[in-house]
């Protein structure tokens, strides 16, 4: 069937005057469409910022999070690898909130149970809890990833051991570095996922200072921005705890 046959068989013919009318009409609609598009784009970019992201976009990130977390199995395990697959040189990407040295003779993990009720836990005490190894593909929000090997106590085991059952029923865990300059908030289901660990070893050795000595968070279901190094304080809240990168326009959830 030729092109002409196609058009004569498959399409309706219309008169010249109707054609002119429709041409005018559809071009007016098109111009209106383009104009509306330009205005919509300008409107969006002129919206106020909500923590570094344009308000409607921040809202969308939150809706995405709600929609996805309600359908996801938050206990789902991250794919793990063999120890031999892990890299020897673990990439260091950020040093915000990091001290040059930390003395574990005086360092204590401060777990805030409530007002004026803070547990102070030494590294030795944490190391005496059941240890788990996690070898997984660590993913940075920048787009790179690395199979890395970490070990420590699962956060769930830790919280059970210190009878933080009431706190487990709250919505969020907040973490701060020793100097409190870097801080994250993590939703409780992700925090209690079985591969989330309070980590003190990488490649079977104590954490180097730039990897968060003496204790860091490893949370494989999140981007690296949530894996806070040199933990000083842990607390619990029903409201979203402040989050360093979320305040700078990133998604609060940052889940994988």
């Amino acid at each position: 069937m030729s092109r002409r046959d196609y058009f004569s068989k498959r399409t309706k013919e219309i008169s010249n005057s109707a054609y002119k009318k429709r041409m005018l009409f559809s071009f007016l609609i098109f111009v209106a469409f383009v104009t509306a598009g330009i205005f919509a784009w300008k409107w969006l970019n002129n919206q106020p910022n909500d923590q570094g992201a344009l308000k409607p976009l921040r809202k969308t990130l939150e809706v995405n999070e709600k929609l996805l977390t309600s359908t996801f199995d938050t206990a789902k395990k991250v794919k793990t690898y063999d120890e031999k697959d892990a890299v020897k040189n673990v990439r260091v990407n950020g040093l915000i909130g990091m001290e040059k040295t930390i003395d574990t003779a005086t360092w204590r993990l401060q777990v805030v149970r409530g007002d004026g009720d803070t547990l102070k836990i030494s590294l030795a005490e944490i190391e005496s809890l059941p240890k788990e190894d996690v070898v997984f593909d660590f993913k940075c929000i920048e787009g790179w990833s690395q199979v890395t090997h970490w070990a420590g106590v699962p956060l769930k085991t830790f919280m059970d051991h210190y009878h933080l059952n009431g706190q487990e029923r709250m919505n969020y865990v907040g973490l701060q570095t020793v100097d409190k300059k870097y801080y994250v908030g993590i939703d409780m289901p992700s925090a209690l996922q079985s591969q989330t660990i309070l980590c003190y070893e990488t490649n079977n050795k104590p954490l180097p200072m730039n990897q968060g000595y003496p204790l860091r968070l490893i949370i494989p279901v999140k981007y690296g921005i949530k894996h806070l190094k040199q933990i000083g304080t842990m607390y619990f809240s029903n409201q979203k705890p402040p989050d360093y990168w979320a305040e700078r326009g990133y998604d609060y959830y940052a889940g994988l």
Binding site: G52, A53, L54, P56, L57, R58, T60, L61, N64, I141, E142, W245, R248, G249, Y250, D251
Partner: peptide, 14 residues
């Protein structure tokens, strides 16, 4: 502009 890129990308993807 990574954060900005992500916020636009995950909205307009819809």
């Amino acid at each position: 502009h990574l954060a900005k890129g992500m916020s636009f990308h995950f909205a307009f993807a819809w």
